[in-house]
Amino acid sequence: MHTKPVLSIADATRILDAARAEAERHQWAVSIAVVDDGGHPLASLRLDGCAPIGAYIALEKARTSALGRRESKQYEDMINAGRTAFLNAPLSGTLEGGVPVIVDGQVAGAVGVSGVKSDQDAQVAKVGVQAALA
């Protein structure tokens, strides 16, 4: 039988707090979603001023990252490089901003962020991931 790391509610809260602080430091109105390794929601937050669709997109970015076991940006890069078959993949968050939480080589979950430029979304998500690993 295998064992694996899992995100606790305390981890999800730490991720949200750190990601929120990073977004607020830059005055970025974003949505932040934290999911488990199966892409199921653990926690989410939509900051004041973020469009409602941001909450949906953040969750899908996180889900894509968790299920794909990689940053969602890698799917965006593949599509932009001409591998358009990924447009039909059963993932709808194939934009930059989803980052997996990797513990001891295992994906424990992921963070997705939406609301500003995609590299800024990823920056906020990565700060959240680092808080989980600290």
Rank of each mutant, 00 (worst) to 15 (best):
A131K: 10
V99S: 06
A122W: 03
R63A: 07
P5W: 09
V34Y: 05
P5R: 02
S118F: 09
A33E: 06
L91S: 00
R25L: 14
E71R: 15
A21I: 02
A132I: 00
Q74R: 15
S8P: 03
R46S: 10
A18H: 09
V116C: 14
V127R: 13
Q130S: 12
F86S: 00
P5T: 05
Q27Y: 11
T84M: 09
Q130D: 13
P41V: 06
E60T: 12
R70S: 09
V107Q: 02
A66W: 04
V103A: 02
P100L: 03
I102W: 02
A122N: 06
D121I: 07
G49L: 02
V107R: 02
S44M: 13
G109I: 00
Q106D: 15
D11C: 02
L91H: 13
A29W: 10
Q27D: 15
Q106P: 00
A18G: 12
V124M: 09
I15P: 02
I32P: 07
Q106R: 12
E71A: 15
D48M: 03
R69C: 04
I9F: 15
V113T: 04
E71H: 12
D37A: 14
Y75I: 05
S44Y: 09
L7A: 06
A125H: 03
D11R: 04
V99W: 03
A66F: 01
V127G: 01
P100E: 04
M78F: 08
L16N: 09
A110Y: 02
T3Y: 10
D48F: 06
V34L: 04
V111G: 01
A110P: 01
A43D: 09
A89Q: 05
V103S: 07
G38Y: 03
F86G: 01
Q74W: 15
Q130P: 00
L67Q: 11
S92G: 05
Y75P: 01
V127L: 05
F86M: 03
G39L: 05
A12C: 04
Y56I: 14
G97K: 03
T13M: 10
Q74Y: 14
D17P: 00
G68L: 07
T84Y: 14
P90R: 10
L16G: 01
A81L: 10
M78W: 11
S92E: 11
G97L: 04
I102E: 07
R46I: 08
R14L: 11
T64L: 04
T94L: 14
Q120H: 13
E24Q: 15
R25V: 00
G68M: 09
S92N: 12
E24D: 07
V103G: 03
G109E: 00
Q27P: 01
T13H: 13
L95E: 10
A51F: 11
A23S: 09
L16R: 05
L87F: 11
G39K: 05
M1V: 10
G49W: 00
L91V: 02
K126W: 09
Y56Q: 13
H40V: 12
P52F: 13
L67V: 12
L47A: 06
S72W: 02
A108N: 08
V101I: 15
S31D: 11
K126I: 09
S118I: 06
S44R: 12
